[in-house]
């Protein structure tokens, strides 16, 4: 049974249609990604799920509750990390977590959470003095301190350096392994590919695709490319006759074969049958990046 169900969600700000028609369902225990170009309606969608905005139309159900009517109950059970949400400069790490823990009926142990998030030696440091990565980890900790069943994380790693980003990803996987369902809003394709069980791609207020990252790539951008240097001359027809192959090109001594499906297996088998060794063999597959461009016509911001 899904823990979040959004059906035909609509939200307008004056003349601007932020969310036109979004439907999606998030299953318990998964990491669900919400992808899309800037201004596509990702944040508005999750803000409606979190009960921070009132939809103009459609339905939202979270843990079987209505985010507006049952707000008090949901705030106990859903943790939210908002985009660009800061804390007072002089507030210290431990103070922030202890304060936020005190709002919940059944909170996590702040001290334990601080250690788990690698902020142990920063517990008495003022917010202002934390690095970007530390601020982000504190922000995640605040979203988790109420022991939520669902955590909604918006633009989790924006502004972090690559190492901090990887550390944060590891952390999110740990959180999921402890049984929390995670909704991740992101425009980093690498992040979605690494973390998400399923992703919804939102463009201009609508869901344009909903699948696992790998499923999305193979349906939207199925093309693969193999490059190699053959040990003996290869007749092009040998390759073009294969059903998996769509084109063969040559650049210098290199052969480039484009195609779909089990392309690698088909090409290497036919070469082996003719006792040709493929040197410097490389397989290039589409990434979620390519699928994203196919779907939205935008380069992912990076």
């Amino acid at each position: 049974m899904p823990v979040i169900e959004v059906t035909h969600l609509k939200k307008r700000y004056g003349d601007l249609v932020a969310v036109d028609d979004v439907s999606l369902a998030v299953e318990a225990g998964e990491i669900f990604g919400v992808l899309g170009p800037n201004g596509a309606g990702k944040t508005t969608t999750v803000e409606c799920v979190a009960g921070l905005r009132v939809p103009d139309g459609g339905g939202v159900s979270v843990l079987g509750l209505d985010p507006r009517r049952d707000a008090a109950q949901l705030r106990q059970r859903v943790g939210v990390q908002l985009q660009e949400s800061q804390l007072p400069d002089r507030l210290r790490v431990a103070e922030a977590l202890e304060l936020y823990a005190s709002f919940y009926r059944n909170p996590a142990d702040p001290a334990e959470l601080i250690d788990k998030l690698g902020l142990g030696d920063k517990r008495n440091t003022a917010y202002k003095k934390l690095s970007g990565g530390q601020k982000q980890r504190l922000s995640i900790a605040l979203a988790l301190v109420g022991n939520p069943e669902i955590a909604i994380l918006d633009e989790l790693t924006t502004g972090l350096d690559p190492q901090a980003r990887r550390d944060t990803w590891g952390l999110i996987e740990q959180v999921r392994d402890s049984g929390v369902t995670i909704v991740l809003v992101t425009h980093f394709m690498e992040e979605a590919e690494r973390l998400c069980d399923r992703v919804a791609v939102i463009d201009r207020g609508r869901v344009v695709a909903l699948d696992s990252p790998a499923g999305l790539v193979s349906t939207v951008a199925p093309e693969q490319r193999i490059r190699f240097r053959p040990s003996a001359p290869v007749d092009d027809r040998l390759l073009t006759d294969l059903p998996e192959v769509s084109a063969v090109q040559r650049t210098g001594s290199q052969v480039v074969v484009t195609g779909t499906g089990e392309l690698l297996h088909a090409v290497t088998s036919v070469l082996a049958r003719h006792q040709i060794v493929a040197a410097d063999l490389r397989l290039e597959q589409s990434t979620l990046d390519d699928a994203f461009v196919e779907l939205t016509g935008h380069r992912p911001a990076n």
């Binding site: 921070l52 705030r75 106990q76 939210v80 908002l82 949400s85 804390l87 936020y100 919940y104 109420g146």
Partner: peptide, 16 residues
């Protein structure tokens, strides 16, 4: 400042 920095908004996501 609290509003601009999202302190109030973050609080709105909690039971407080």
């Amino acid at each position: 400042t609290y509003r601009e920095r999202g302190v109030l908004r973050r609080l709105a996501t909690t039971p407080a």
